[in-house]
């Protein structure tokens, strides 16, 4: 029953949402869906609190047991609770100067720094990966070089308009054709997974291993 009840609830609500999404003009369905949407929003908000508890458990244990790199876990908890307490007890509004200072001078630059370091990894990875080992690799290499030059002004300055036009063509024709295939495949996979969850074949989210 521990497994069956959540599956039954999931099936009932899942089918209800699917029907309410695709069947229009039935006020009872619309009203019902509005209620379910409200519940979902409340659950989503609480999920943040659950996330905090989960992180505290994982990193608290790591600090307690002095595992390798526990200092980072400690720092994570100081930042997480520090920002939360400051926001809830001191700032109380996103308009607070102290909150804005922390956001503008800590969160934003750190987040942007982590993302921008990718350029170095991509640069080094491109150097190692783009080797003309066979015909397919050569095609990939040429396409990559055309894209890299065609999407920046330097390419047009050095080589003329054709490089930009060729990059546009790659983006619009072979790329779009490939992306469509991938996206259709992923969507069908998503529908199949959703159906498996609805009918209870896939139970990993309940802590089980499925069939």
């Amino acid at each position: 029953m521990k497994q069956e009840l959540p599956v039954i609830i999931g099936l009932a609500f899942g089918l209800f949402i699917v029907i309410a999404m695709f069947v229009g003009g039935v006020p009872a369905l619309t009203t019902g869906k509005n209620y379910v949407d409200d519940w979902f929003l409340v659950v989503s908000a609480w999920a943040i609190a659950v996330g905090v508890v989960n992180l505290t458990q994982i990193h608290g244990r790591r600090v307690q047991q002095r595992r390798e790199g526990y200092q980072y876990s400690l720092w994570l908890m100081i930042c997480m609770f520090g920002m939360a307490f400051f926001g809830i007890l001191v700032a109380k509004s996103a308009d607070h100067e102290g909150w804005k200072f922390m956001y503008n001078n800590l969160i934003a630059p750190m987040n942007a720094t982590v993302y921008s370091t990718l350029v170095f990894y991509i640069g080094a990875a491109a150097y190692r990966a783009f080797r003309v080992r066979n015909v397919e690799a050569a095609v990939l290499l040429v396409a990559a070089v055309v894209m890299m030059l065609g999407r920046v002004p330097l390419g047009t300055v050095l080589l003329g308009d054709w490089i930009g036009d060729t990059a546009e063509w790659i983006l619009n024709v072979p790329n779009s054709a490939g992306m469509r295939g991938i996206q259709i495949g992923a969507t069908l996979g998503g529908i199949a997974t959703a159906l498996r969850i609805l009918v209870g074949i896939e139970r990993a989210h309940l802590g089980g291993t499925g069939d």
Binding site: I122, G123, A126, Y127, R128, F130, R131, V132, L141, A144, V145, M148, L149, R151, V152, L154, G155
Partner: peptide, 12 residues
């Protein structure tokens, strides 16, 4: 981008 291309050429 130009620098990455130079490195790709050198690597090849």
């Amino acid at each position: 981008h130009a620098l990455i291309i130079v490195f790709i050429i050198l690597g090849n």
